[in-house]
Design a protein around this nucleic acid. Structure first.
Lengths: 211, 211
DNA sequence: TCCTTTCCATACGATACCGTATGGAGCACG
DNA sequence: CGTGCTCCATACGGTATCGTATGGAAAGGA
């Protein structure tokens, strides 16, 4: 079917490229079907090959899962570092961007992948460890931005945690409102989370009734 | 195996009770295995019967799923109404209780069920509708509490949304910290969401441990 | 040309599950 | 005692999937 080989690439590179194709397809599949829907023969049909191909590239199902998970881990770590690289004076903007990336309207696929991985993590301790690692890095990066905004250590940690919990949680909700209303709602929440540098240590009754 | 019948109950009640047993077991199963793990023969083994029993009580798999979903819907609606029934002067406390109910440390099973249902809703529009209904009711109830605390309509809606998104989202995260640190973190976030009441400063942590 | 390596197809046995058909045990009731 | 109803067991055909075994086509090198 496809060209069997590419003289420009060493066998190792070609093999790794084909593995990558399987991993990509696997990620697409778990986005739509969840981790339980990740079946080898289903995947093979999508790639227009048979599972004979799969078992040449991977030892078994778990090998694909591990590779997929590792691919996800690396991508997320790379992304968060890119999104939160120190840019003095732009911290609030960067935080809003972090929220936006997983804002439920755009990037639907990314959200579905994230949710599928986390659902998987509920039932597989090895996956939970990887998710914990990604969470720790994301939380540290977001916390640093809040610190740069002048929040205390503890307050920055709390805000970072709230930020991510909100982002993931919102994508789990089914809000029945006009798209425009939802955007307005999300903007308000995002503004509040990234918002006023004054933490909860100071009286802030105005904030409550503001707007 | 079991007594085939109970003379105290009408056939209808008994049948409905047995359906309830299947539904209960099904909920336990999706909590641990996810919706994809809800298999009839697996369930039958757990109940120490064969699927012959299942197909007497239910037409097919979808019938069980529908019954399970309806059971969940009714329970959630009943719960939220009970938790948010008007108790003037206790609104902040009630809001913190709503957060506590799904606080990831306790009530692990309830959280897993909630997550499993929402994962299911990502891939089944009928389920998404039910989740949307439950969300709408929960959001309205929480919003009313915020309104009673003196927030504007829009602010109350935003806070209610943030509250639930946070609760669900946090249960998806894997925070690697000491349990005591996590409690402190959650207390701070909950205090921030339920809002520093006017003129309130630093008193929130005590209030949180009340009740 | 022959041989080897790479990559995939095919065939196989095994498992798990679905939904149906059918039988049977226990109980109620006339 | 016979009949009917309730509830479950068993057996069956069918599908989907796993992992393995094995063959074969394409391409490169000796």
């Amino acid at each position: 079917m496809a060209t069997v080989n590419d003289p420009n690439r060493s066998p190792v590179e070609r093999a790794s490229l084909d593995r990558a194709a399987w991993i990509e397809a696997a990620i697409d599949l778990i986005a739509t079907e969840g981790i339980a829907g990740l079946r080898i023969e289903t995947l093979a049909r999508k790639l227009r090959v048979t599972k004979g191909s799969f078992y040449w590239h991977f030892r078994d199902r778990r090998a694909l899962q591990r590779a997929l998970l590792e691919h996800w881990r690396e991508g997320r770590i790379r992304d968060i570092h890119k999104q939160t690289r120190a840019r003095p004076g732009h911290e609030a903007e960067q935080l809003r961007h972090v929220i936006d990336v997983y804002s439920a309207s755009r990037n639907r696929k990314g959200i579905l992948i994230e949710l599928a991985i986390r659902e998987w993590a509920q039932r597989d301790p090895e996956v939970a460890e990887v998710v914990a690692e990604v969470d720790a890095i994301r939380l540290a990066c977001a916390r640093d931005l809040f610190l740069a905004l002048g929040l205390s250590e503890e307050e920055a940690t709390a805000r970072a945690t709230l930020l991510y919990a909100y982002v993931f949680g919102f994508s789990l909700m089914h809000v029945e409102r006009m798209p425009q209303e939802i955007e307005r709602l999300k903007t308000r929440i995002a503004g509040w989370i990234t918002g006023p540098a004054a933490g909860d240590d100071e009286g802030s009754s105005e904030r409550l009734h503001a707007e």
